[in-house]
Design a protein around this nucleic acid. Structure first.
Length: 109
DNA sequence: GGTCTGACTAGGT
DNA sequence: AACCTAGCCAGAC
């Protein structure tokens, strides 16, 4: 089980992750690994997943997916993330994966 | 200050 | 396709 991960530090690596996640445009998605790179690996992909999971409602956490283009939250919220993404126009392939080349967020410097 | 865990990833079996 | 390993890290206890 997930022990606990109540975000305390509002200025630590977590905040860094949230700031980036907030910038993901509607209808676009980013991967954990991608975000990890964006923060200069202050957090590994695992840490990013941890931060995203602990994110509040203001953060569009549903726009964060794994490198395969599938959602990693089905265990916790079956179908939720997919539904939220489809609601903003993100289409899933037959294998349940998103086409990252098409929906992947390409942040500019 | 040691121990344990996870919404990851790439690679292997 | 299912399962396993190692690398990686901050945060809670």
């Amino acid at each position: 089980m997930a022990r606990r991960l109540p975000p305390k530090k509002k200025d630590g690596p977590f905040a860094r992750v949230w700031a980036i996640v907030k910038r993901i445009p509607r209808g676009r998605v980013a991967t954990y690994g991608q975000i990890s790179e964006m923060i200069d690996r202050r957090l590994t992909p695992v840490g990013v997943g941890w931060a995203v999971r602990a994110a509040s409602d203001e953060i569009p956490w549903h726009r964060v997916i794994n490198s395969r283009g599938t959602v990693s939250t089905d265990k916790a919220n079956p179908g939720l993330q997919r539904a939220m993404l489809e609601a903003e126009g993100v289409l899933f392939g037959r294998d349940g994966a998103i086409d990252l080349a098409r929906y992947g967020w390409k942040p500019r410097s």
